[in-house]
Design a protein around this nucleic acid. Structure first.
Lengths: 333, 333
DNA sequence: CTGAAAGCGCTTACAG
DNA sequence: CTGAAAGCGCTTACAG
């Protein structure tokens, strides 16, 4: 590998001069600049990023830590999140280091990563790494509802509760006093947030959300998201008096549409359908197109990145931002 | 930031000793080890990855370069690819640096990235970076058909031509001598590969693939993938005598299914449908479920990572591997 | 406009 | 088992 030293020697100048030619941090005469550049090209010299980082104590890299279960791939949400982070970072000249290495509790293994800041996905409660980042002064932004103990930590999250509330309110006002809610798996915080938002909407109308109209996705019972939607309708339609169904994702709604078609139910006349997220960005591609919440995991990621980059400028700042996902009305309701 | 020096001083040992305690590269007495670890913990010391990388000339990071168009997000394919790369790398203790910074033709800006090797997505022809990587001796693996000039470069790709050939052969043998091919955009190499594979299948049966039965996706003419499928059927059914349709992706097939439903065409009896890729992993969630090629972008990514990690061990190696995607038969044909 | 030298925080022969 | 010192390839005051 050719180094700055090699170039300096051949060009008959000092390392500092070569450095300046590349960094442009101090003016170098045109003549010398050209000579250095020519030699550099001849030698195939490119500045060493690592050495530079050590010297200036900056890497221009943002770390993105995410749990990667060994078998499962990334979810649509995670993926869009990443996309948002990457876009925003590259816009500001930063790169993204994907870090899904298994967590090592062995302190010996934890190193100060080559990053200027970190975005953490789905932090577990009492995650030991959060404390470590604080300790080392590494700027940190969480995506998702943070541990309650860390009030002083920056994070972004969706307004899940409010969204469910809004959807509930809309349906109630348009006369759908009885509905079916195909929620996410019960152990997800987002499922809880949504149920409580929906419950609130009912309460405000002097009604109550019947527990047997709220289902939860379960890996054991459903082969895939679409089937979850399909089966749920097939098994309950006629038995429960709902006129609208709220689904966890667009995929679930795909199954609901299928069941409706099979049962000859016109959508939205006989059955209104609203998806609480649009993971696979199918909402526009179904027939009829789907009213859905555009969760914009991507916006969430971009927002997290923006906040992180701000914090990196001024580490005393703490930003806690709720990203308003928006309900987009389409043909299904 | 506390450094190895701080720890050494307080523990009353040399930097080398502290280093050894953490790296375990040479034996340190139990007593000293404990003392150092205690001090390190007290001080919140974690080894600096950048400094370490400079010293050992390794970063344990793999670079993943991909073109990121400014507005568009990552495609399903890219995403699955990334997922595959990340999984394989983390399995072997490597991290992944996502690099979607705009390409700078300015040599001044190109730096030796903090990576031990690079995976490059969708390399353009005559990509100047390929030459640079060669020049600097950075191990490189391409995903996608490489520039013909670089025969000595490692890469992975799908057997796109063969897949199309297989699909064509299957349809011809089951009596579908006339079909509609909703191919990808014409400027993509994959579109060319597929068309040539399909053409070959026809030729072998003594038939020829009529040009007007091959369509290409176009951003200008189609609002989205599903519509591309829908419109194409609506506009051509009855005019062209096809009994089967081959689509670029599962999304396109979604539109085809919709059109078929509208036209009252039974699938697969009146119309067989096969998707050449399953980007959004919808194939199982449609009705009827979709016969599709499981492109396994994820396998492609994992394979690329494996090869890269091998090459990094022995830079003289060159691996060129074709990942066989497989045709999965479901209800739509 | 340019050079000499110290420094960034580690690792690693070499010596003991 | 441990230390002193050189080295990894840059950057950056300081001096001129």
């Amino acid at each position: 590998m050719t180094t700055i030293q090699d170039v300096a020697k051949l060009a008959g100048v000092s390392k500092g001069t070569v450095s300046s030619v590349f960094s442009k941090k101090r003016p170098i005469s045109k003549e010398v600049t050209e000579r250095v550049l020519t030699i550099a090209k001849e030698l195939g010299y490119y500045p060493n990023h690592v050495a530079r980082s050590l010297a200036i104590k900056k890497t221009m890299i943002v770390g993105l830590r995410m749990p990667l279960s060994k078998d499962s791939s990334m979810s649509g949400f995670e993926i869009q999140m990443i996309s948002g982070v990457v876009k925003e970072c590259s816009k500001q000249g930063y790169r993204v280091l994907l870090d899904s290495l298994p967590e090592l509790d062995d302190v010996t293994q934890f190193s100060m990563d080559p990053v200027d800041g970190v975005i953490m996905l789905n932090p577990r409660k009492h995650d030991s790494r959060i404390a470590r980042y604080k300790q080392t002064g590494t700027p940190l932004v969480l995506v998702g509802r943070p541990d309650l103990l860390h009030e002083e930590i920056s994070y972004v999250d969706n307004n899940n509760k409010e969204l469910a509330y809004e959807v509930g309110q809309y349906l109630l006002e348009t006369g759908h006093t009885s509905l079916l809610f195909l929620n996410a798996a019960s152990d997800m915080t987002v499922a809880q947030d949504r149920e409580s938002g929906l419950t609130e909407a009912f309460r405000q109308k002097g009604l109550s959300l019947s527990p047997d109209t709220v289902m939860n996705y379960s890996r054991q019972h459903h082969t895939n998201a679409s089937d979850y939607g399909y089966e749920s309708i097939i098994h309950t339609y006629g038995k429960l008096p709902y006129t609208a169904v709220i689904t966890d994702t667009d995929r679930v709604a795909l199954g609901v549409l299928r069941a409706a078609r099979e049962l000859g139910l016109d959508i939205p006349d006989k059955l209104a359908v609203i998806a609480l997220s649009n993971d696979a960005t199918l909402a526009q591609e179904t027939t009829p197109s789907l009213t859905s919440v555009e969760l914009s995991a991507e916006v969430l990621g971009a927002e997290a990145a923006k906040i992180l980059l701000e914090i990196m400028q001024d580490p005393t700042k703490v930003h806690q931002r709720i990203v308003d996902a928006k309900l987009v009305f389409r043909e299904s309701c």
